[in-house]
Design a binder for these strands. Structure first.
Lengths: 205, 205
DNA sequence: CCGATTGTTGACCGAAACGGTCAATGATAT
DNA sequence: ATATCATTGACCGTTTCGGTCAACAATCGG
């Protein structure tokens, strides 16, 4: 790619990046259109090809950008000293909410990349990132303090419930709801608080 | 449309329908391709146009089919005498699971149709179906017996949790997992059972 | 004020895919 | 044998695809 891209005003860079993340988040590599990305970014198609050698180069730059962004944001907010079951999950989910608020298409882009099979880009996509995500549940369960949970409550099952719920919650948000970060956090915290109240032994509430 | 379509062997009808539901579930009306639908159905594009006058006719037939299917399946399993909070939700979700098992793209097709804005089809899409879905939560809350819930538990909040969780659960299923209907039901029931155990007063367990 | 560099675009290219048509083929049933 | 009908490959004109390029405009160092 053309390194002069990074000399552009930040908003222009962001416009191209966000447009690219959007088209590749909504379709697979083959079907996503550079023309549409340019349209969404508000620049000419020729300009996109001026900064990125071709579709593949654009895609791979976005991949690097999105994975870097998510790893950075997720680990920045991570507190390794925290052991409370719900607090760990809440912190992780608040980070995800913040990412989705600031970069609505970055997560979906990464998810698509994980399943992307196009031979033009598949070999260039690392599995390291997916590997980190894959066993994050195991690492969570190893660290989270399950002793605060009421008798007979499976930590794995409760983790599933919270993760599925968080996923469903985020997906059911309208674009307007995604705009209001504080309201988003409040609603999520209120519901997870309800879970916590029922699943923790009384002495830990 | 050509009524002779219904004289075809059932598998052939299903192949065309499922292919159509798939392409319109994955893309909006404008971007979805009749060519791809034919490819997925394993028939020639000309045959599709033989049975459906044009893209619009195909889409509108699928809309009618999908909404009819979902309404039929959902109401067939519905028990109006049931008032238990969790049982109502479980029954509804088991119906959804069965639909998603048998017609993996019908639900997403309907969701897309709800947001479809293309002027060629938008005017022909009824809002009656969406209206039914929209206030189903209110009707549920009016009928469900919230008195079994522990002190201080909001029925609305718990409903959200279960719905979001069910949504996240279904979305995280792999295609292979979607194949095994019994296992699907078991996993879902186990998790919802865990919720029930914590949210119901002890005398109702 | 100059010329060189760089940001930006409209017009264009050949190829592919689009929605849609049609003549021809093959099967079936009377 | 004939009429009916399922089915398709080839084709139409149009649009969109990834990608290129010449040209214009802005900026900047001398």
């Amino acid at each position: 790619m053309n390194a002069r891209f990074f000399e552009l005003p930040a908003e222009r860079q962001a416009a191209m990046r966000n447009a690219g993340l959007e088209v590749f988040a909504k379709q697979n590599y083959a079907k996503a259109s550079m023309e549409e990305a340019a349209r969404l970014a508000g620049v000419s198609k020729a300009l996109l090809f001026h900064y990125f050698e071709n579709k593949r180069g654009f895609y791979l730059y976005l991949y690097e950008y999105a994975t870097g962004l998510v790893i950075r944001e997720m680990s920045a907010a991570h507190d390794y000293s925290e052991t409370d079951f719900f607090n760990i999950l809440i912190n992780a989910q608040l980070s995800k909410i913040a990412i989705l608020h600031a970069h609505p298409y970055a997560m979906q882009f990464i998810t698509n990349a994980y399943f992307e099979e196009d031979p033009r880009v598949r070999p260039a996509l690392a599995d390291s990132f997916s590997a980190i995500v894959a066993d994050s549940s195991a690492r969570f369960l190893a660290r989270a303090d399950a002793s605060k949970l009421r008798e007979g409550v499976s930590a794995e099952a409760l983790l599933n419930i919270v993760l599925w719920m968080a996923d469903g919650f985020m997906r059911s948000r309208t674009p307007e709801q995604l705009q209001d970060l504080d309201a988003l956090n409040d609603v999520f915290l209120a519901h997870v608080g309800l879970l916590k109240k029922q699943f923790y032994k009384e002495e830990f509430l």
